[in-house]
Computed example of a mutant assay.
Amino acid sequence: MKNILVTGGAGYIGSHAVRALIRAGYQISVLDNLSNGFAEFVPKGVKLFKIDICDPKELDAVFCEREFDAVMHFAGRLEADLSMMHPEEFFYVNCVGGFNLLETMRRHGVSKIIFSSSAAVYGEPKSIPIKEESDLKPINNYGRTKMIFEQTLEMYRASYGFSYVSLRYFNAAGADPEGGIGERHHPETHLIPNILKAAKGECDFYLFGTDYETKDGTCIRDYIHVCDLADAHVLALKYLENSDVNISRAEIFNLGNGSGYSNREIIDAARRVTKSNFKIIKKPRRKGDPSILIADSQKAEKILGWKRNFTNIDQIIETAWKFELSK
């Protein structure tokens, strides 16, 4: 298997996965409408199809132009808070667009897919750390659309023999130490890049929610470096490659560091890295934010042989800070 289509490959996590796939010897094509991605994140020599997955005719044209052995699917909406205000947009892109992709794959005989899922499918977990068999009870519409697409993948496995790996990762953070790509969203809703913008003096920093039932009243999250996530995607692809071609595969893996940091602890770490004592403005909770999300990633370690190279939060933030300063 060599020819891989990466949807959302000009975005934050997708662009890091593209670099990892190229290093692993794969031939890559990127499909991205650039609504949340950037053409400059796509390496030179990689074909970029500026296509929207919600347009089945354009999707079909891509699959007619090139043959693919597998798809790595990152394209979609990701802002949990906005999903509560505009559920129709998230359903349309994440579910309808995802369905268009699966149907196009089916028509063209492509049956292997790696899906960029999320810990948001779990909602407020009953126990920590979270295992893959934990109940799926998302509390925001973003998580609901991820869950719906996972269920759709299982339908296509059972009915059409698709093989898939769904990677439920927790809070992606950091940037490629080699530079050139990193986290950039418009609008930016993620904690670490907003902290770093405040450290640069570009904006105020808003801390949403200080009344959670946690050690310091703020949300606790499991931060995983984006390059470690990219490595996991390559390993997942190799897992499908090495599977019996006559047997459809379905696996789900959590990807996290296995340790949680509160928002206040992330602020403290960012202050250490940036040497900036930026101002904090407290705000009420955002709708759809769980209190605590921490991953149990032992399954990925055991089955995929996945190992994390970035385990220290200061180290993770340092790579993000380097990218932020380069912008």
Results as ranks from 00 to 15, higher is better:
residue 20 A to Y: 01
residue 263 N to F: 03
residue 233 H to F: 12
residue 313 I to P: 09
residue 239 Y to D: 08
residue 25 G to W: 09
residue 51 I to H: 05
residue 202 E to A: 11
residue 82 L to E: 13
residue 208 F to M: 06
residue 135 D to E: 15
residue 213 E to T: 10
residue 144 R to L: 15
residue 159 S to H: 11
residue 110 V to N: 02
residue 138 P to M: 10
residue 215 K to Q: 10
residue 145 T to R: 00
residue 191 L to H: 05
residue 156 Y to K: 07
residue 282 K to D: 10
residue 143 G to A: 07
residue 57 K to N: 14
residue 143 G to D: 10
residue 36 N to T: 15
residue 197 K to T: 04
residue 73 H to W: 08
residue 127 S to K: 12
residue 212 Y to P: 03
residue 282 K to W: 00
residue 216 D to N: 10
residue 149 F to L: 15
residue 111 S to E: 08
residue 87 P to Q: 02
residue 25 G to M: 11
residue 40 E to N: 10
residue 191 L to A: 00
residue 171 N to F: 03
residue 3 N to P: 04
residue 305 G to S: 04
residue 155 M to I: 13
residue 136 L to K: 15
residue 211 D to G: 05
residue 12 Y to C: 09
residue 73 H to F: 10
residue 156 Y to H: 02
residue 4 I to A: 06
residue 104 T to V: 11
residue 293 L to H: 03
residue 157 R to P: 02
residue 104 T to G: 14
residue 266 I to P: 02
residue 163 S to V: 13
residue 196 L to N: 00
residue 233 H to R: 01
residue 216 D to S: 04
residue 171 N to S: 12
residue 81 D to I: 07
residue 304 L to F: 01
residue 164 Y to N: 04
residue 91 F to M: 14
residue 183 E to H: 14
residue 264 R to E: 12
residue 183 E to D: 07
residue 257 N to F: 01
residue 29 S to E: 06
residue 140 N to K: 04
residue 73 H to Q: 14
residue 277 N to A: 14
residue 229 L to I: 15
residue 97 G to Y: 10
residue 302 K to M: 03
residue 234 V to I: 14
residue 298 Q to K: 15
residue 305 G to D: 06
residue 70 A to M: 08
residue 196 L to M: 03
residue 68 F to S: 02
residue 216 D to K: 07
residue 86 H to A: 03
residue 110 V to M: 03
residue 21 L to M: 13
residue 102 L to K: 13
residue 259 S to Q: 15
residue 250 A to S: 14
residue 190 H to L: 11
residue 251 E to D: 09
residue 153 L to H: 01
residue 16 H to Y: 06
residue 223 Y to W: 00
residue 111 S to Q: 09
residue 223 Y to P: 04
residue 144 R to T: 14
residue 62 V to P: 10
residue 193 P to W: 00
residue 56 P to L: 07
